[in-house]
Computed example of a mutant assay.
Amino acid sequence: MPNLVEWFSSLQWDRVLPELVGKSLGFLAGFAASWFLLFRQRLNAIARMQSGDSDDFIFQMHRLWELPHQANECVLLFRNVAPKTTLNDLYDNIAVRDFLKEVAENTSLDNPVLKTEGTLGFEVLNDAMGHIAGLLAITPFKRETWLFVMTCEDRQVVRKKCIRCFLIRPDDLNRFLDWDWCVKHVQVEKPWHWFRIVALHRIACVWKGEQEMAQAESDMARDGDMPLVDRQVRHDRIRMISVGLNDGERPIGDPHRIDWESHVDKLQQLGLTLAKPSAMPERDPEPAEAIAE
């Protein structure tokens, strides 16, 4: 005990106390800053979720289901065909993530296709195609030719803004090229799915342009040309892929005919003049079950 008292008395308290207090305050300040940053990060994550912004990557199949006993009448079906993943999980390169976020922000309902130009865009598109092709390689369904396109729809018309990779048969996408036919003959499972018909119509227009450009390039190409890397500077953003998907999907509930007249103003605000009230079909009355809901 005397030794302990003597040790305490020998300490230079004029130096010990300031150091002890300084280090304690530094520790408390670091702890408070770390807690604040984690708390702020959590608040930002909640705010992003509430605003609809997301880094999710979703793969969706689209098909037109012919309504029985109604000639030339179809219902648009779209279903998720793979587990949801994220931008960070799919691309480990930080620069690629930043590139995708930038091109996603530059999309709109008028042009929902991601502008994946250049060699970097070519590789980004190939990686996404390879991912879904690998996931669907073990399905028991018959393989068919589908079209693959990376999209990000306008935040003004969708609840959740994220990158969606569409899969659709070439024949079905070709039918979406005729906007008058879309307005008159395509129904949906839910009334708010109208924006997906607009997106598919715009994608069909892009596909037609790419086909015409590919044909022009094919006419000018020589058989002896090598597939050089420089060819990736301009590549098709809508690509063909061979996968097997369930062909037995059916509509959920009664289909809805879209009241396009109510969306004319919204489309015009977005810079789209696709439909006119005079060209729109009359709206069918809603089923009694839907009215009750």
Rank of each mutant, 00 (worst) to 15 (best):
I94Q: 00
F99M: 02
L100K: 04
K101G: 12
E102C: 13
E102S: 14
V103M: 12
A104H: 01
E105M: 07
S108Y: 03
S108F: 01
D110L: 08
V113M: 10
K115C: 02
G118R: 09
G118D: 11
L120F: 03
L120R: 02
L120K: 01
E123I: 14
D127F: 12
D127C: 15
D127W: 12
D127T: 15
A128N: 11
H131C: 08
I132H: 05
L136C: 06
L136P: 02
L136R: 00
A137R: 08
A137V: 09
I138N: 09
P140G: 08
P140D: 08
F141C: 12
E144N: 02
T145W: 02
T145N: 11
F148T: 01
F148D: 05
F148H: 01
V149T: 04
V149W: 05
T151Q: 02
T151V: 04
C152F: 00
C152H: 02
D154Q: 05
Q156F: 09
V158W: 10
R159C: 14
R159E: 15
K160I: 15
K160V: 15
K160C: 15
C162V: 05
C162G: 05
C162H: 06
I163T: 02
C165K: 00
C165I: 10
P170H: 02
P170E: 01
D172Y: 11
D172P: 13
L173V: 04
L173C: 13
N174S: 15
N174V: 08
R175Y: 03
F176P: 00
D180Q: 09
W181F: 05
K184A: 07
H185L: 04
V186C: 14
V186W: 14
Q187N: 12
Q187P: 07
V188T: 15
V188W: 13
E189W: 05
K190S: 13
P191G: 10
W192T: 13
W194M: 13
W194I: 04
V198L: 09
A199V: 14
H201T: 12
R202D: 00
I203V: 15
A204R: 11
A204D: 09
A204C: 11
W207N: 15
E210S: 15
Q211N: 06
E212H: 06
Q215H: 09
A216G: 10
A216E: 10
A216F: 03
E217I: 04
E217N: 11
S218M: 04
D219G: 07
M220Q: 14
A221N: 07
R222W: 00
R222C: 09
D223G: 05
G224K: 00
G224Y: 00
M226Y: 01
P227C: 05
P227V: 01
P227M: 05
L228Q: 02
V229T: 13
V229H: 01
D230R: 07
R231K: 10
Q232E: 09
